[in-house]
Amino acid sequence: MRCPACKLALATLEVEGVELDFCVEGHGYWLDEGELEVLLGAEETVLEVGELGGGNGGKGPGGRRPRCPRCKRSMTPVVLFEGLELDLCPVGDGIWFDEGELAVLMTELVRAGRVVADTPLARSLDSLTRHFGGTS
């Protein structure tokens, strides 16, 4: 798989028995369908990844949309809340988080009281977002 932003081959990170794909250069994360929920230890769907329609044919404001690293379809931008626009695969393969976006989502979820607080995985995720998000 290649990074939707810079086309570099994605590396894989294994923490607490969960695997994530990340870009060693741009520090973005690719989460396959369902991985976000595993990561958060959430019982129900945190972010519905489903049929979104065909995107906008690869063009739009701001140039070409990044393509899904799995199916190569151009991804659909989804505004989750004020200040966070994520790229979702139009057929539900997964979600692309640019650098820092995972941290923004985490902060918002914690604020809304939706994350399981103190698991090894949640602590990992916290440090993951610290190193890749916000700080750099």
Binding site: L8, A9, L10, A11, T12, L13, E14, V15, V24, E25, S124
Partner: peptide, 13 residues
């Protein structure tokens, strides 16, 4: 953590 780097990534990086 375990980091897995694909062959395509150059070794110097």
């Amino acid at each position: 953590a375990r980091i897995k780097l694909p062959m395509e990534l150059d070794r110097e990086r």
